[in-house]
Simulated scan of single mutants.
Amino acid sequence: MVEQVTLYRAPTTNADADAIADWLGERTGVDVEVRDRFLSLRTDDDLATEIAQTRVLSPHERETGNTMTGVVRYEERALDRPDRAGGVVYDGLALQRGLRERVPDAERSLDHLHVALLDRVIGTWGDHDGRWHKRVNVVGQLTLVSVPGLYEAPAKPEAYYEAKGKHALLSGGAPPREVLESEIEGDFLVEDDPRTTEALKGYVLQAVHHVETGEGFCECEGCRLSNPHRQPGVVEAQLREPAFCDRHAEKYK
């Protein structure tokens, strides 16, 4: 059983780690501690190179990693100034394995779960279709929760892509994201969305639930433990009532 959770902040995002920690403690009865950014607390001379080794090079290429000097320098700058980073996808499982080794030895048991909110986009490889898929979280010890992944991983409403294609056809190029987001009806999360903290609560709870029960995502649409692949499903699961399916409502109050 999980007895303690350590949650790490992502200060360049609008995710409120303290609010998430309070909610998680109320739902699980677990002691939740909040620490500063994981990549800042656990950095050393090798971290930038290790992160560069997990870079996704192409959406349809399984091989990852680029440790050329310029790329490593970029990762060093991103560690120092994370607000200037972006536009890169990282292999979530490889990054998880590497960062897990940086958790203190005395805190690695499964009764002490570590969850890092990240300002990076993470993905996993799909053997079924031969391409990378962006993810909101990669659960386990340590769990990674991507704040930008909340906006980018789940697909937006069909109308969004239809409008994007229409703009491209008429003007020869895609319009700015902000223009599309303002034009499309429907509920979906956007960068710096004020609902970010509330939506992330369920993804952090998924980490605790997985370690405690060994279960994967809930198959019931609308439950905070489900894993919707489209933005309207995320809004329904994480921001609408009821918060849980009947089975998980009993467990998480």
Rank of each mutant, 00 (worst) to 15 (best):
P82M: 08
R37D: 15
Y74V: 09
L57E: 03
L113M: 08
D18S: 00
Y74H: 10
A19R: 05
T43N: 09
A52E: 00
L95H: 02
R35I: 08
D91M: 02
A85D: 12
Q96T: 03
D105W: 15
H112I: 06
R55A: 08
A21M: 00
S40D: 12
L24E: 00
R27N: 12
W23F: 14
V103Q: 07
D18T: 00
A116S: 11
T49L: 10
P104I: 10
E75C: 12
L99R: 00
Y74K: 06
D105H: 14
L24C: 06
A106M: 09
A52N: 02
D22K: 12
N66D: 14
Q96W: 06
D22M: 12
E107D: 15
V115K: 00
I51G: 01
G98F: 05
E63R: 07
R100D: 14
R42A: 13
L39C: 05
Q96H: 03
E26M: 13
D105Y: 12
N66Q: 09
R42S: 11
G86V: 01
A52L: 01
D111S: 11
V71L: 09
L113T: 10
L57R: 04
G25F: 07
D16T: 03
D83W: 14
E26T: 14
D111I: 04
G25T: 10
T54N: 03
T54S: 04
D36P: 09
Y90R: 10
V115Y: 02
R27L: 15
E61S: 06
F38I: 08
E76I: 07
D111K: 06
D45N: 11
S109F: 14
R27S: 14
V89C: 06
R97Q: 13
V72R: 02
D105P: 11
A94W: 03
S58W: 13
R97D: 10
L113W: 01
G87D: 04
G29Y: 08
D45S: 13
L47T: 02
